[in-house]
Design a protein around this nucleic acid. Sequence first.
DNA 1: AAATGTATGTTGGAAATCCAACATGGAGGG
DNA 2: CCCTCCATGTTGGATTTCCAACATACATTT
Lengths: 227, 227
Amino acid sequence: MRDFIEVLQKCALFDGIAPRDLNAMLGCLGGRVAAFERGESIFSAHGPAEDVGVVLSGAVQIVMDDFDGNRTIQDRVEPGGLFGEAFACAGVERLPVTVEGVTPGRALIIRLIRITATCSSACAFHNRMVMNLLRVMAARNLQLSRKLEITSRRTTREKLMAYLMSQAQEARSSRFTIPFDRQALADYLCVERSALSAEIGRLRREGVLESERSRFTLLGLENGGEL
Amino acid sequence: MRDFIEVLQKCALFDGIAPRDLNAMLGCLGGRVAAFERGESIFSAHGPAEDVGVVLSGAVQIVMDDFDGNRTIQDRVEPGGLFGEAFACAGVERLPVTVEGVTPGRALIIRLIRITATCSSACAFHNRMVMNLLRVMAARNLQLSRKLEITSRRTTREKLMAYLMSQAQEARSSRFTIPFDRQALADYLCVERSALSAEIGRLRREGVLESERSRFTLLGLENGGEL
DNA sequence: AAATGTATGTTGGAAATCCAACATGGAGGG
DNA sequence: CCCTCCATGTTGGATTTCCAACATACATTT
């Protein structure tokens, strides 16, 4: 556990809690460290949802099975990231998703109630953690809203432009690199890869943007590059 | 305000707070009651996001309008329901959505900071409210995920069926009433109203479902009606 | 009854997407 | 260098959606 103190300090859940207090907290929280392999389930769909997980090393992904039995990767979580918090906080009886290892690694598993229930004595940090949880979930909410805003556009071009503009805004520059290759971007935007490529070509020919692989530059934004 | 005590008791934000304590709380929170008409904005896009709203009567919906006049209904909120909490908790400067009345009604508007900042004295219920907020945001999170799951389908038919099945699941019956008219359902699913109507007609002719206005029955689910 | 308004269903042509297939071009290995 | 692999770009025809317009049904008002 000692090896993971640095990761935990970066974790939003422990934001504002001093390193030396962290140890006391961890004792109070009574978590356990679970090792996982690539492809191994940490939380299983239809299982209980009482626990929150923090990735300590390696990576996990949240996988959803839809009506047709197709699997969709909802999200990927890296060290310092949380998983399962929404389900535990919402108090669902059965998890609708599976959390599985993408690589071998370890995760800290904490019973949510140990975070939210104010304990008697020393660790006065429960409130802080609850507020941190609030912030994490609100941020996640916004992210989902933004994705909805993008994917609810009707045409490939509109979705692409909405995405690129949000990326430019995030990078505070009209030149930026996106974290997707073409196929992944198409999946994200809910469009065809070929239609996406075609649209990018069209926008390039129209002088709206320049692009090379995952590197994009939006033109005609009435500035040289910085936003 | 007194008239709405019953609604507030049902509100997840005040869960676990006794009726007589509610009055003291409300004083401490310093909310105001806003009346709204059908189509009137309660919160406007690009405006500040410091407030949380509770629907007291009538109904509101959270909408995103884009440049082309296409609109997406993110959600509809009935009496006792909250709106705006995620944006306030995340501390965004400008709201990315509009909240408007679906029918005439009233809403209680509370400054978020009055909920999260523990006050000096009497009202020891802030902790409880923060926990309630946590639960509400988690629930909204799940809901947004579900909506993404539905709208990320490619065809009108798939979106419609995914939606109807989720509604059936929620109602625990293959016969249920949806809270949208055709235009609103189209906006929710991000499709054309006419294409939606056509698809419903097709599904009806194929014997997949029966429908009359907002009342649907899914057939061929290997059961008489109850799920 | 007539007029009006609203919700839903239907239809036809324009436009966009989807899908499959192939073209291109760079990276890396033999 | 040649070859393969893989990401990306391109293209054409089948399919679907989009849009505008009109049809139908029902409720309300005058």
